[in-house]
Structure formats: C-alpha cells, structure tokens
Design a protein around this nucleic acid. Structure first.
Lengths: 348, 348
DNA sequence: CTGAAAGCGCTTACAG
DNA sequence: CTGAAAGCGCTTACAG
C-alpha cells in the first residue's frame, strides 16, 4: 500500500506541541543559554515525540550549521586512506554529521580547484578533515579565511588540531633497524608520485632516513633515493627503476608497506627476492604484511582517523555556541609506532 | 593581509547584471524551457562573469536539487568498495555533485537506522548509489517512497539502473576451472560475515558454485560450505574453521580475492600452502593476486562504480526537468569477467 | 517568453 | 527568559 508522503515535521510543529515559540524551540534544541529548564524539557519532549530533526538546508541557509563535514584525502583507495576515511566517517555519523568525501585523486589540479573555491565548500560543510595534504601558503591562508573548522591527520606545524605519528622518528627507527643489521648501503623508496602533490608524511620519512644515516656518519647515495609514491604500482616502478637504471643496494627502506609490496613484486619479476638479495622494511603493518613476511613499523590507522574526527567535532560544537568559549590552542597528538620484525630483513 | 570576507554572489547579482528577473535567471541557469535564447545568453554571461554558483542550501530548501548524492557501501575499506567509491566519486565530482559517503560498517543496525529515515536522507541528497546492498522488501518500498533517484552496483532484479558482473556465471566459471582440473571435492568460502547483512553478490556466487557442481552431477558437501564474509580476516577464520572443525577439500573457491588471501594465510599458519595442499581460486584480480600467484576471475571495478554513477547522474538530470521526459526503463549492465590462471590451482 | 509574490524551514538580532 | 519580525537565497505556481 503506497504510503502517503508524510510531510516533514518542522520546527513549527514542535513549537505548537510544546506551546512555545519557534525561536525558543530553536534555542532549546541547540543548547543555547537563556532558556528555562522548564521550556527546555517541554521542547525536548515535543521534539522527541514528533521525531523532529532540523532541516539542514534551512539551518544552513539561515546561517546555522550545515550538519556536514568534508574529508579531503589525496586518494581514497590506498590502504591508509581507506581505513582512516572509514574510521572518521563512523565518528562523524555517530555525531550526527554527514560526511562528504573528496578525493584529490593524486592530482594537483583537483586540489587547486578545490582550494580555489573554499568559500563554496564552506557553504556546504561546517568543517574539513585533511588527510595528509601538502598545503601551500596561499592554501593555508584560504583555509583560514574560509571560516571552516579544520582538523588533520598526518600534518605538521598546522594551526589546528592534528593527529599523526612521528614520521621522522618512525623512519629513523626503520633505518636504524637496517643499520643495526649491518647494512650501510641503503636505498629509500618514498616521496611523491611524478606529478602528484607530495604527501607531507613522505618528506618527513625521507628526513628521518637521512638523519639516521648521518647519525652513523653515513650519507645517502643520490642514486639510491627514488620517488615512489605510496602505491603498490608506484613501489614496483621505483624498484624497477632502481634495478634497471641505478643499482641494487644492500637494504631498502620503503616509505610505506604498499610501496614495499610493489618492490617485492618487482624483485620477483627480476627473479630476485627479499631478504636473499636485499633486505626491505616498510611502515604501516598492512594486513598483508604478515603474510609476506615484511618487517615494518606498525602504526595505528583507524585510531588516527577517528581521533582527528572527534577533535573536529569538538571544535564544531564549541564554535556552535554564541560567545564561543576561548577555543583552546591547536593540539597535536602523536600516536605510537612499533617495530615488527619479520623475515624481509636479515643481517648483512 | 586578511582578505575582507567577500559576501556571496547571489542570484540577485546575476539578475541585476543581466537586467532580468531572478526567476528568469533561475530558469535559464537550470536549462528550463521558456527562456529566449537572448535571455539565456545574457544570463550565462553574467553568471560566468560573476562566478555565480547557486546556493545548494537555498536551492534545496526551495524544493530544488541538493547537489549531493550519497554512496551507500557495506564497508568502505574492502578492496572492491574503496575502488568503486573512488571511481564513482570522481564521476559525481565532475558532474558537480558532492558525494556523501555512508558506510554501513557491515552492521545491520546501521542499515536499519539509515533506511528507517530515508525521508531525512532524501532531504539532504538527490539520489543514492547502492553498492552491493542486500535489501528487504520494506527497504525497497521505503526507497521507492523516498523519491530518491537510485542506481546500484552489483545488485539484481532491481527497479533502477544497475551495473555489475554476472556473479553466478563468474562463480560457475571459477568452479568449472577447478572441476576441469580434476577436482571434485570442492569447498566454497563465501557468504556473509556472522551478524553482517549478506552481500547480494555472495549468494549469487554461491549459487554459481552449486550450479557448476550439479552440471557435473555433483553436489556440495555441507561441511565444505562456509561463511567467510569478504575480508581477509573473514577468509582466514573460515579457512581455520574448515581445517580445524571440518576437513580439507581438494580445491577451494573463494568468494573474492581477499577471502582467498585470508585462506592462504591460514594455510601458512598450519604449515600448509596452495597449490601443494589444496588448489584455490578467487574472484576480483586484486592488485596483490599476481604476486601471490592466485588464480582468479578478473572483474573491472572502477568501471562498475563509474558507470553506475554516470547512470545515476543521467537520471538526475532528466528528472530535474519540468515535465520529466518519459524515463527509460531501468537498465542492467553486466561487465565482462575473465579467468586469469596463475599458480594457485593445479590438476588434481 | 517574463516577472512579482509567496514560501521553503530555519536563525539572528531586537524588543519585551 | 521569551516572542514577533525579518531575512537567508533560491524555486514554484500564477499572472501577464
């Protein structure tokens, strides 16, 4: 039986049922001050009884919140991002927010276009969660001017809440593991895909690699530093490049596990393997890493996405109030990483 | 230098610049009929010059489109879904739509809650792209009543556009490959994770498996049919279950490559491997499958997501018009799959 | 083909 | 603490 299109429950209905005006209802529902306990209770009752939910379109148009947040990711398919996105989406959904997914698809033009119309975005969402986005100064300024609430994962020295890991430290630890095994001829497969915006984490990991080397009085052979992006295919191509146009090192630090997977694939294509022909270590502890025997620095991914999302929601709630209480300074949280030794690394 | 908050360009501005009324502007911009070519041109000029973009909130509130679509996925992290989501998001973004990501997180309660308030969703998005969602009759009815435009990936016998593969056929081909190799004692690892809504594809693949068997006068041993979900961990647990509580078959058809990966991991934990101890075939051709030597039925994933997304946009455009031209009947598109033989399957 | 008016459902000052 | 009024920027009938 075709159900009659039940017309929407509006704030008017709640006002009528509670016997109060719509503006009192509006204030009560948004937890604003200057509403008596009595009124608040009546309103909440009426709203609950009617199953009222404010129209996000109306709220938005009238200057209120949009009830949506955007997640901006360099790509949505990589292991790290798919997980961080889902974890953040869960937190947003539980907080009553719709999450708009924006993948930059590893293309600078997409990023430029997006940041070129942040005002447009600001009209559609209350805040953005940035995952590992490398921002230029103009983009930082545009973000500040947009009025959007911001939080991020894996970024650095930013004027908003951030959660990540100590990339430099993790890279250093990974490199030290290799050095501790007696390897001194090290290659690094990391950095940015050709033409793609660089990931902030990539350069930090590169730096950690170099620092570990210099701690030991060593310096990176330029021939052994190759851009690899953060994808399996990127890792494969980088490893092929290393073997065909450069030279085989004694050990490899891959910027992430997927890069390491790609390197392992390339080795196999050349009839080689790890650790027999070269030791290799990654960062992530991807679900497949155990199976492939990949030594890696494990990092918590869902935790980073969820935590950053909750920080964003906190800010949003705070700024939703009238005289926004003094917002605390931006916080930065680094989650722990841990060396997981497996069979892809052996003493030299 | 802090830029003055440029106030929004509204339809009023376009009207003023073009010398026409806002309603003519509104009609012209939405490609509605009853606008002279002359007016249309002036409006387009003015809008372009001002960089005007309609407020989605206002449009939505006034009864127009929301400019957003939702992608509903059982989970966002699985290989298939992460790829389908990104491909669809790209099509939506290029079409000017925001994409709201909704992951059911493999939880029936999340799905129930979502379908319990489809009216609310309909207020925030113009249409939904369903990825492999198993729908009950009530949910189908709710969807129809919601007025949302719908398209899907991997569904069956639905009253809207769908694109997928012939799951039954692919499963049959995979099973036939095993049978052709002389295996007759077959297990299937597929179906739904305990407590999770079943994926529509899973049951179809199960059916294909059974059909192939009966084609050869065989019938599935109930002991060798085990639920596995579509995750690596699900596959691993299913394989452990098979080995510990049931018995080892001669060959295994895994519902998807990730399930097969999990099974391979379980084998390794038991000191076994494929194809030495058991042959195994999957469906997908995941990026890692080549590396693991997994024989599989390859399917195009991004194509499915992108194609379904474009079909949804087509419907949306059509229904945006006044006297919606007779919408064509729902179309169904099956993309090709292909057997990719590798080393995980050998003759019995 | 074009425009004036009303209204979508909220929020924001502004009075009381 | 509470309410009447105006307005957010569009779209939808309805006249012309």
């Amino acid at each position: 039986m075709p159900q009659a299109k039940t017309s929407r429950v509006t704030i008017q209905d709640v006002a009528a049922l509670s016997g109060l005006s719509i503006c009192t209802v509006s204030r009560a529902l948004r937890q604003l001050p200057n509403v008596s306990e009595h009124a608040r209770a009546r309103v909440n009752d009426a709203a609950a009884q009617l199953g009222y939910k404010a129209s996000s379109a109306a709220s938005r148009l009238a200057g209120g919140s949009t009830g949506s947040v955007a997640i901006i990711a360099p790509t949505a398919t990589a292991w790290f991002f798919a997980r961080a996105v889902e974890a953040a989406e869960e937190v947003f959904a539980d907080g009553g927010y719709d999450t708009v997914l924006i993948s930059l698809r590893n293309r600078p033009t997409v990023q430029q276009k997006l940041f070129g119309d942040l005002a447009g975005l600001a009209q559609r969402v209350d805040g953005v969660l940035l995952l590992n986005i490398a921002l230029g100064e103009a983009e930082m300024a545009a973000l500040a001017a947009s009025g959007l609430a911001v939080a991020s994962v894996g970024m650095h020295d930013v004027p908003w809440d951030n959660v990540g890991i100590d990339n430099e430290g993790a890279a250093r630890a990974a490199t030290n593991h290799l050095l501790g095994l007696g390897h001194t001829d090290l290659a690094i497969l990391a950095g940015s895909e050709t033409g793609a915006p660089s990931l902030v984490t990539a350069s930090e990991r590169r730096r950690g690699f170099e620092l570990a080397l210099s701690d030991h009085g060593l310096t990176a052979d330029p021939d052994l530093v190759v851009d690899a992006g953060s994808s399996i295919e990127g890792g494969r191509l980088a490893m092929v490049e290393l073997m065909e146009k450069r030279r085989m090192p004694s050990a490899i630090f891959a910027g992430c596990d997927e890069t390491a997977f790609g390197a392992l694939m390339a080795l196999r294509e050349f009839g080689l393997s790890a650790p027999e022909n070269v030791s290799i270590i990654g960062i992530d502890d991807h679900q497949m890493s155990w199976f492939l025997g990949l030594t890696t620095m494990a990092q918590p991914v869902a935790d980073q996405g969820a935590f950053a999302a909750s920080l964003l929601i906190d800010r949003l709630h705070r700024s939703g109030l009238p005289n926004p209480p003094p917002a605390g300074p931006p916080s930065s949280h680094l989650l722990e990483t841990k060396l997981v030794e497996r069979t892809s690394t052996i003493p030299r």
